[in-house]
Design a protein around this nucleic acid. Structure first.
Length: 264
DNA sequence: CTCAGTGTTCAGTG
DNA sequence: TCACTGAACACTGA
């Protein structure tokens, strides 16, 4: 479940679970893909560190420890944190198992292994965080700046929204939701949008991300009018809550839910 | 058995 | 070199 709101929800849960506590136990599943550029030995050596903060930028999240390096996570398509207590059975697909001194526990799981766990001395100054654009929750720029960005790109506006070096944190469902609510065709070249259209897009993006974060990414609490509830599964005959038919196509290499009657 | 999939990266194209 | 596209990655579940 990892677009910005889901990662932010995970950040908050991790913060409550671990900040201000020392890591009493660290277990590492053997996995040369998910653990990129590090080793079980270096990870196990995090035992004894205090978790000082849990931070996020775009879809990346990291635990700031009392001593470097810090511990960086990316959830890929299916990664996430499971919270629990020491002694409980390990969840399926576990990769990294952290237990605090007071027995609170956080386990990183990733069934598809597209997620990554890395160690970084200066997370924000190095790859992959250094290559990210502005965080769309914390640092969404004003409309003129976005107009300027779009002017440089002839790719479909949806593909540009998904570009993490520009709009860090936007994922497939957020991009579709924004374009649906702003009434814009996802295939339109970004550079073809008028200033007014960009203003609409910006305002919808701001609102959607804030609302999703406000309910801890619990989709059952997303507004009923959101396309989100209707976009999954590519079902023929799908329609919005207002009865508008949904069409599915591929834009920017991703499944795209599009409502022609509103996004012509 | 086949295929799609809330993400990222890299090779290939023009 | 740049902008862009599409396949690959790895695995589950429908």
């Amino acid at each position: 479940m990892p677009e910005l709101p889901e990662v932010e929800a995970a950040r908050r849960r991790a913060e409550r679970q671990l900040v201000g506590r020392h890591l009493a136990a660290v277990s590492v599943a053997p996995d040369p893909i998910v653990f990129e550029g590090t080793s079980p030995r270096r990870l196990v050596a995090l035992r004894g560190r205090e978790v000082v903060a849990v931070r996020r930028r775009g879809k990346h999240l990291w635990m700031e420890l009392d001593k470097r390096p810090h511990l960086l996570f990316h959830f890929g398509m299916a990664g996430g944190f499971r919270l629990g207590r020491a002694g409980e059975p390990r969840p399926r697909f576990w990769k990294l198992d952290l237990t605090a001194e007071d027995n609170r526990r956080l386990v990183f799981t990733d069934p598809r292994r597209l997620g990554r766990v890395r160690l970084r001395r200066n997370p924000e100054g190095e790859a992959p965080l250094a290559g990210l654009g502005f965080d769309v929750l914390e640092d969404l720029p004003p409309t003129p700046k976005i107009v300027e960005i779009f002017a440089r790109h002839g790719a479909p506006v949806k593909a540009v929204l998904l570009d993490q070096s520009l709009f860090a944190g936007v994922g497939n469902w957020i991009a579709d939701e924004v374009l649906y609510q702003a009434g814009l065709d996802p295939r339109r070249p970004a550079s073809s949008l008028s200033r007014e259209e960009v203003g609409r897009l910006r305002s919808r993006l701001h609102d959607i991300v804030r609302r999703a974060v406000a309910v801890d990414a619990d989709s059952a609490r997303f507004p009923r009018t959101w396309l989100f509830h209707r976009r999954w599964g590519r079902k023929p005959g799908a329609h919005t809550a207002r009865g508008e038919p949904i069409t599915f196509l591929t834009v920017g290499g991703r499944t795209t839910a599009w409502v022609p009657s509103r996004q012509g």
